[in-house]
Nucleic acid binder design. Structure first.
Length: 500
RNA sequence: GCGCCAUUAGCUCAGAUGGUAGAGCAACUGACUCUUAAUCAGUAAGUCCGGGGUUCGAGUCCCCGAUGGCGUACCA
């Protein structure tokens, strides 16, 4: 590798050449930085700064990336950035020795170094480490983006997230928060007796949602398989099997359009509890989000893109029929036939098709006229059966199901219902989905005979809830795009068509 | 999928009306032992996203394409 470093020197720009030259000099002096295997670290920048009284005057050993250099002749200052912070290094020629100082002058911004030294405060009041030994631990051959503006180019930030993380500290914080949110969720479910499980990502029949799946191929079995579009149907099989409280946090895949709120792969949590219903799931959802917000953000009052959101329960609860009535004046409880519903939709300027029914039209009106108003946390409850193929019908009105969706900042955050456990009803609903599929709806469910068979063995009354974790993280980290909460968002390759 | 906008040095950005590209940071050389967007002097650095076209002349105008951002459509 090292021998190759001179190979195409003419082809690369001067900055890269200079760094490669510095590397080969180190190598020929027997100081190949890439040969170093280990460095003892006993403190971090954040620890030192937060517990300065304990560290003042003490010897510490630190390692991290050099982020800036301020040379002043026989003394230099650097900023060293490590896992959770940044600290200034003060390097004096008379402290480290002449040879060492000359070498330190040649380091580049971006190099990884280990230092030992004494913690002190400069005259200007900055907590620093007076270095007595400096070890280059890895050479950076690429120049970093500018120290003040950081990396702004969105394309590069997503494609080269490692650079984004190095130079834009708030990015690292977002992902630390994401990690804490997921961890807090696990604690919440675990402490309530839910069991975390893992179900297959490779599915024979993708189900549990209306979405086009990704198709892949298994060579030995010589058959196509699908990446899962939800975890729902497997988790409910586990309820049938007597695992009464289960949850899964996992990646799902939907072969659909991309937008600031949609990535082809994203993470959901789904939770199921036997002997509970959608009302219990509403309470659970409220408790979950509040638990996470309190634990991670230490507040229930957040700001999302300039709008203040108060997460303090209880949250608004509104039936879909009431919601549509409030915002459009159209009262679906007074509408009986599909024909009447279609006329109401026309009056409201909603585009409809001949296949639309009372329930699908109610849902369309809700999506087009109501969703945009749901900024504060709001549970919309009692969804039409046509758009809820896996939810239990309401006893009081079989056109509706015991289902809710949670909206915050106009976005769907969670979806839950009293799970349909009637195998005969479930089979009929699948058959309806299959008909829609045959009619060209690529997002309709496929028949899942094994799932129906499972229900035939008997599933207890069960409440279930699914939540988009990426969207929750967006909300809690005030991130405008889903790509800001995904370390490596899906990107189109930059160069195409060159080889083939 | 459609529409609008963006793409200029490693990074952040300027480049009216078409006249042959500029700053700051980073880099390099030098000065400087408490600086912190260090300072000072000097040097070097470009496939102006790619490909066509108009023109005596294109970073700039036109067409096609690439990637991204936003909006819209789609997404129970």
């Amino acid at each position: 590798m090292i021998e190759n470093s001179n190979e195409n020197l003419q082809d690369i720009n001067e900055i890269l050449q200079v760094r490669r030259k510095k590397l080969s000099e180190l190598v020929s002096n027997g100081e190949n930085p890439y040969a170093v295997t280990k460095y003892e670290v006993d403190a971090s920048a954040k620890q030192i700064i937060e517990n300065y009284d304990n560290f003042e005057g003490k010897a510490v050993s630190l390692a991290g990336r050099i982020m800036s250099k301020r040379g002043m002749g026989k003394a230099s200052f650097c900023d060293l950035s490590d896992r959770d912070g940044k600290i200034q290094l003060y390097i004096r020629k008379d402290e480290v020795g002449e040879d060492s100082y000359e070498k330190i002058k040649k380091i580049d911004i971006g190099d990884i170094a280990g230092v030992t030294g004494e913690v002190f405060t400069t005259n200007k009041g900055e907590i620093s480490v007076k270095v007595n030994a400096f070890t280059l631990l890895s050479k950076s051959l690429q120049p970093l983006p500018e120290k003040f503006h950081g990396l702004k180019d969105q394309d590069l930030r997503y494609r080269q997230r490692y650079v984004d993380l190095i130079v834009n500290p708030e990015v690292k914080n977002t992902f630390i928060t994401r990690s804490k949110i997921v961890s807090s969720m696990r604690h919440f479910f675990d402490s309530q007796g839910y069991l975390e499980v893992e179900t297959p990502v490779l599915n024979n029949i993708p189900g549990g949602a209306a979405a086009r799946p990704f198709v892949t191929h298994h060579n030995t079995l010589d058959m196509n398989m699908y990446l899962r579009i939800a975890t729902e149907l497997h988790l409910k099989r586990l309820i049938v099997g007597g695992m009464e409280k289960v949850y899964e946090i996992g990646r799902i895949f939907r072969n659909e359009g991309m937008s600031p709120r949609h990535n082809p792969e994203f993470t959901t949590v789904e939770v199921y509890g036997a002997y509970t219903d959608y009302n219990d799931m509403m309470t659970l959802t409220e408790n979950l989000v509040c638990h996470v917000a309190k634990e991670v953000l230490e507040t229930l009052e957040i700001t999302y893109q300039g709008e203040e959101i108060n997460l303090t329960p209880p949250w608004n609860r509104m039936t879909m029929v009431d919601a549509v009535k409030n915002y459009t004046g159209i009262d679906f409880s007074a509408i009986q036939t599909d024909e009447q519903a279609r006329n109401a939709a026309k009056d409201a300027n909603i585009a409809i098709e001949n296949t639309d029914t009372w329930g699908t039209i109610l849902n369309k009106l809700f999506e087009e006229k109501v969703e945009q108003h749901l900024v504060s946390p709001t549970f919309i409850i009692d969804y039409p059966v046509e758009v809820s193929p896996l939810a239990k019908k309401m006893q009081s009105n079989p056109r509706l199901t015991e289902r809710f969706e949670l909206f915050i900042t106009r976005r769907e955050i969670a979806n839950a219902f009293s799970e349909l456990n009637d195998p005969i009803d479930q089979r009929e609903r699948f058959e309806e989905q299959v008909r829609q599929r045959a009619a060209g709806n690529e997002e309709a469910n496929m028949m899942d005979d094994d799932f129906v068979l499972a229900l035939e063995y008997g599933m207890p009354p069960t409440g279930g809830m699914g939540m988009g974790i990426d969207r929750l993280v967006m909300l809690l980290t005030d991130s405008p795009s889903i790509r800001d909460v995904l370390l490596f968002p899906t990107m189109k390759p930059k160069k195409i068509g060159e080889q083939s």
